[in-house]
């Protein structure tokens, strides 16, 4: 048996619905149709009265989920694409994110964002929004890179008492397969060493973990041992694991698919620079998408986002210093 990243997300929601009667799913086309990507396939049938089609009203979708959370339910909201969550942005960042801090009432809701670039998807079906959500206090932002994490982190997200922005990468939906679903998982908020090495640390998350691993494999025959840290959640950010890795390697390259200005890669470098400056043998570097909207044409798209090749080039430069 093999299971894809997308199927793992479906299974995690089935488990959440089965184990917790407070859980329900709300989103456009999620019920009988099973969602635009089929992430909720058959769930409406298996769990009658628990999966609801929403109108194209992202603001009201999140608002309703917040109200339901106040009443003690645990909504999972599917955005058809992460890009459309901006139409519900106000309710996410001003309502969901501030509720506990203002009222002591926790806001347990999970917003699933199918995000990230795929070839030919263009400026409005490709965005990576983890950075802007991570900017707001009160939100947890998850970015699973593996089938196992997609599964266990989504189950964890639903169980957490705070609003979780669950960023699931569309590029990984069908590509990524595992033999079985895990029975155990690392705690939420803990990063993972995806590959051990001693010459350079690449910090990545979501789809970029796989680009980083491919770059590490490319550099291995040249004699370089690259360590790859998978952040898993970008907020909270596991600075300890990153710092420990940099202490071993002395070199830090951060990779993110989101835009360069500010953001997760900048945050990682800022933390290492201020708390572990002495660990660094060379200036830390980062690679992000280019500072333009995400282009439609595959030629442009491939140059817009960081790839294994671009990562290997950047790493070589640092290794030779």
């Amino acid at each position: 048996m093999s299971i894809t990243y997308l199927e793992a997300i479906r299974e995690a929601q089935a488990v959440a619905l089965r184990d917790d009667p407070r859980v329900f799913i709300y989103g456009q086309d999620v019920a009988a149709f099973g969602g635009a990507f089929k992430a909720t396939k058959n769930l409406a049938r298996e769990f009658p009265g628990r999966v609801f089609d929403a109108p194209i009203s992202e603001d009201a979708m999140i608002g309703m989920a917040v109200g339901a959370a106040v009443e003690g339910l645990r909504p999972i909201v599917e955005m058809q694409f992460a890009d459309f969550s901006t139409a519900g942005f106000n309710q996410i960042v001003n309502q969901a994110a501030t509720l506990f801090w203002r009222t002591k009432i926790p806001c347990s809701l999970t917003v699933r964002l199918p995000f990230g670039g795929t070839s030919g998807s263009g400026p409005f079906h490709s965005q990576s929004l983890e950075t802007i959500y991570a900017h707001y206090p009160g939100l947890i932002v998850m970015t699973p890179a593996t089938v196992e994490d997609a599964y266990s982190m989504l189950i964890a997200a639903v169980a957490i008492d705070d609003p979780v922005i669950f960023c699931e990468h569309k590029f990984l939906y069908y590509h990524l397969k595992a033999e079985a679903l895990p029975s155990e998982a690392l705690p939420v908020g803990k990063a993972r060493i995806a590959r051990e090495g001693r010459d350079l640390t690449i910090v990545a998350y979501s789809a970029m973990v796989h680009e980083a691993l491919a770059a590490a494999a490319e550099l291995a025959p040249e004699g370089w041992q690259i360590e790859v840290v998978d952040l898993r959640t970008v907020k909270p950010l596991d600075t300890d694991t990153v710092m420990a890795s940099v202490a071993r390697t002395g070199r830090l390259l951060c990779v993110g698919e989101a835009w360069p200005w500010g953001g997760v890669t900048a945050e990682v470098i800022a933390r290492v620079a201020s708390e572990g400056f002495g660990l660094l043998d060379v200036p830390p570097q980062r690679l992000n998408a280019k500072d333009t909207p995400i282009p439609y044409h595959p030629n442009l798209w491939a140059a817009h986002r960081p790839t294994a090749r671009a990562i290997a080039v950047a790493a070589r430069k640092m290794l030779r210093q």
Partner: peptide
């Protein structure tokens, strides 16, 4: 996705 088109390959289809 022609480079000579009005959207220069930056955006596609109905956009």
């Amino acid at each position: 996705g022609s480079a000579l088109g009005p959207m220069r390959g930056r955006d596609g289809n109905v956009h």
